[in-house]
Design a protein around this nucleic acid. Sequence first.
RNA 1: GCGCUUGUAGCUCAACCGGAUAGAGCACCAGCCUUCUAAGCUGGGGGUCGCAGGUUCGAGUCCUGCCAAGCGCGCCA
Length: 586
Amino acid sequence: MKHKIEALILQAIETLKSESVLDQDISPKIIVDRSRDPMHGDFATNIALMLAKLARLSPRQLAEKLITALPQNDVIIKVELAGPGFINFFIDPGFHFQVIKQIHSAGREFGLSQIGFGKKVQVEFVSANPTGPLHVGHGRGAAYGSVVADLLQAVGFDVHREYYVNDAGRQMDILATSVWLRYLEVCGEVLPFPSNGYRGDYIREIAWNIHKDSGTEYHKTASSVLENIPPDEPQGGDKEAHIDALIDRAKNLLGETGYREAFQIGLNTILGDIKDDLKEFGVDYQEWFSERQLLDDGSVDKALQRLQSGGHLYEQDGATWFASSRLGDEKDRVVVRENGQYTYFASDIAYHMNKLDRGFDRIVDIWGADHHGYIPRVRAAIAALGADEAKLKVLLVQFATLYRGDEKVQMSTRSGEFVTLRQLRNEVGKDAARFFYVMRRSEQHMDFDLKLATSHSNENPVYYVQYAHARVCSVLRQLTEKGLERNLQRGLDSLDLLIEEHEVNLVTSLGQYPEVLERAALQHEPHQLIQFLRELANEFHTYYNAHQFLVDDARLRDARLNLVCAVKQVLANGLGLLNITSPESM
RNA sequence: GCGCUUGUAGCUCAACCGGAUAGAGCACCAGCCUUCUAAGCUGGGGGUCGCAGGUUCGAGUCCUGCCAAGCGCGCCA
């Protein structure tokens, strides 16, 4: 409808151009908005205010001419000039009600569109290091990312969801070594645990399982492990040097293959947990992309060569630098360290080159807000690789500060003290958790009160929306119990009986659903969909309290049932996009 | 110190690429269940949109400065 009016205005402008009221070369952006106040009709445009200067007319004069030039059509019953020069459009109420027919025929498809034109878009999100289970901090990125991806798909993009697995690098070595040291404890060895190691119970579990499956295959004595290892921090040493020495010792004592095996078992176990968690949380990926693969298949080399040939690399202090400051970054960045190892950034350049080479029209990276300083260097890399950096869209998710009542919950992966996503899901349930996470704008800091979220009280707004759905189902059950049947066609033929204010409001809202989806998707703002669903639920509950649906008049009854079934359908569609269930009863 | 993000009702948050009288929920007060689920509805109080300038027909929204909070400024990931 919005687009229809936009088209009409455009025609009117063309007419005025041909009459030389407007210059030929102007091509204004037509903005049509839903009117907030019903007094102002259904839609409004400010186009006359925008173009008044160019037309050398007062806004109201121009609006007058535009209204006159508006082509004949069958949907607009009244056009008004208002205020400083707004043009308000009043839609034929009968036309509003046609949306009920559309909803009944489109069903689950209602609201979907093709404005994405099948463009290929890659969405990468969560990508947490596989060094421990996902915690509630990752939950927001998971919920947000998956809904952003689903929304883009709903409006016609070809979406590829991806998790970048950081299965290389020092953190993974620390993980493997932590597992091995715990394993040695299971074997009966007594040795101090490094302050920089991963201390979570899940490490012990993995160690225990390795011992169960492989016995003493990786067993070495404590003395051979600790011999000549520099002291840990609590003993006055350097914790980094200490853990690095332990990593080297593990590689020496276990040998390349032995170490690799232990490493792999740890990785597989944790990554497996992460995959399970996300799946249970309603998050599905098309691809789990391995960082190690980039290193192993020479992609990182290739990426650096490409930067080299473009003249973007230089040597200094024994390291290789990427001249990112020439491309908008604060300073240049090291890609190959003095010791010959690639930095994390090097593989990230390769990863983004890979994304570009796969032919995505758009690349969406969803990161925690603490990584915002990373954006300029990745943009610089994309530009240096010769690609259009506008293809990259980075969306930041602020961390949720966790509270239990008034008390702030402190979390640290290393110490193993955190609330896992699994715990949250078990306590709150998938529906409430997802709803809660996506309810606010992603850049907005968020207080997540576990006490509130875990309490199954009516304060949780997800129940409010779900309840509206369940109520419609309940009405339909009542209908059957009364021995009545719904006649769809009779209802559709009787839509003109829906004259109550509540009914008009509901139908108007239903008609907005496709616009809401479009906006939420293009602006990457799932909370707009939530907002809409809450409003729709509110209008339904109000209607429910004000009017009886199961009335004696069969025509009115069927018309109303068609309306509430349309509401049910849209609620289910919206909740479905959020991957939240639509219960038949509560 | 520099950079990014945020600042709206007592609390948590909305406000559609600048638009007409800034809206919800929670909390508070007063009402509504012999009628389709009261996890609901109706009404009420509650605001110098952080502060000060600027841009224009019009600013919570854009620009500048200041104040405050979070985050970031490694040859870590």
